[in-house]
Design a protein around this nucleic acid. Structure first.
Lengths: 248, 248
DNA sequence: CGCGCGTCTTGATCTGTGTCAAAGATATAC
DNA sequence: GTATATCTTTGACACAGATCAAGACGCGCG
């Protein structure tokens, strides 16, 4: 039995990321009070599809735990990941009818959702929210365009290094040590998911990771636990200029 | 002598795209009146850079005529185009300090600009504008993500076919005939610009265009004038499902 | 008219990544 | 403990596209 259903509808949720990050950065806490009754949680198992491209998407929400991804698929099965959603990331397209791409649970996933209609109503009455959403969308656009450079012009090795440095610095919860020391984290993606993100095959991903390991750029314990002795060396491999910026 | 300077500051501009498309879709005509005094035009020659990545960008605006592109460049010179701006397209990142990528005039270019500060002020007082900008940014995000599929997973031939069908249907002014008949238009990009957009070399672009010509998918007069006898055949080549959607 | 310069085409060859195949890890179930 | 499934690594080989190189075309200008 799948877990694709509403698991809880609490009217109080102190830890909900939508409050402090996605929407409410500049709002008074009680500005969202009227939305509480339209809030609910949904859980998904790794591999489940949250929404299919083209389907009506009647909610917006944020990732509470786990990882979701946005993917596009061609008829013959070739797929490209176009977005990676880590905890606290926002999903949803206010003002849009349907989803533009599949939303897939890459790991087990919990999302905090609001029904879209009341959310949009609130957007109209609370200008800060539209501005905050614009800001978030601009961030996503920057990330997407950075990825276009990765997809279009970087070699397989550079792609892997780019992905590693992005994942490492994106999700603070994965980050075990500070910027200047060695960086230790767990890869939240399978080789296949990495391949879909980078426009490679999973074999190439595996080979390049092995190569980075062999060259001492990274160390691996098991398949997922990564140690980066020197972050600037990794960034060098990624072909990024100086500090690279925040991607994904 | 370059043309990178203000060429006119008219206080009346009936045809300015920013009025009817970029910003004012839902605004009363006089809502922008207060901005008129901050409006000006700038012209650039093909090849000139409008803003450098990282530079302070103190204006927003729309393309009036010509084509601009957003590009990213690596230290070793590899470049990837990440946005293509046709007439009536909006440029600028309200709420952001600097530019995130180079803005380059791909052809001779005229832009209609507003100083950013007063524009942002108006955004705060006119909620429709923030909502309209959010909508536009979501469109750009969709386009960027569609391009990620092109860059990451399509073959060279599919890339060319994708670009042709996108350019053909994007800019109404280039469109000489209706959807169902043959499509005739002038390519506004050099082979090199196409290559930068598609993550290919210009030689590969040239070869693939020749191949499409040889196979009767397109006809060429000179280097730029394209005729597409059957659009659905071209879309088939692009690997798009049914109606493809609006990209770029 | 011929010259020079940028754009485009085409050819020959090289190489990075994909494809196909098999076997090694690791985890979960029995 | 063994069995089964999933994920990962590694190898051998093929091919799409890059690279290097030479011309062809078009166009402005003397």
């Amino acid at each position: 039995m799948l877990k694709d259903d509403i698991v809880a509808v609490p009217h109080e949720c102190v830890d909900c990321p939508i409050r402090h990050r996605a929407v409410c950065a500049r709002c008074e806490p009680d500005e969202l009070a009227e939305l509480e009754e339209f809030k609910y949680y949904r859980s998904f198992e790794a591999g489940q599809t949250v929404v299919w491209s083209g389907d009506r998407m009647d909610f917006v929400g944020t990732v509470v735990s786990g990882i979701a991804s946005l993917t596009q698929t061609m008829e013959d099965g070739r797929t490209q990941m176009v977005g990676l959603l880590l905890p606290s990331d926002f999903v949803g397209r206010p003002g849009r009818e349907g989803a533009a791409y599949d939303v897939v649970a890459t790991t087990d996933l919990t999302m905090c959702c609001f029904r879209k209609k009341p959310f949009e109503t609130m957007m109209e009455t609370t200008p800060h929210i539209a501005q905050r959403l614009l800001e978030m969308t601009l961030d996503e656009l920057d990330a997407a365009r950075e990825w276009m450079l990765v997809l279009g012009r970087k070699t397989a090795r550079e792609k892997i290094a780019s992905l590693l440095s992005i994942v490492a610095r994106r999700d603070a919860t994965l980050r075990k040590v500070t910027m200047d020391g060695p960086l230790v984290f767990d890869l939240p993606l399978t080789r296949e998911a990495m391949a879909d993100y980078l426009g490679l095959t999973l074999e190439t991903v595996s080979r390049q990771i092995s190569a980075l390991k062999r060259d001492g750029i990274i160390h691996l314990e098991g398949k997922r636990h990564v140690t980066v002795p020197d972050i600037s060396v990794l960034m060098e491999e990624a072909g990024d200029d100086s500090d690279g910026g925040m991607l994904v």
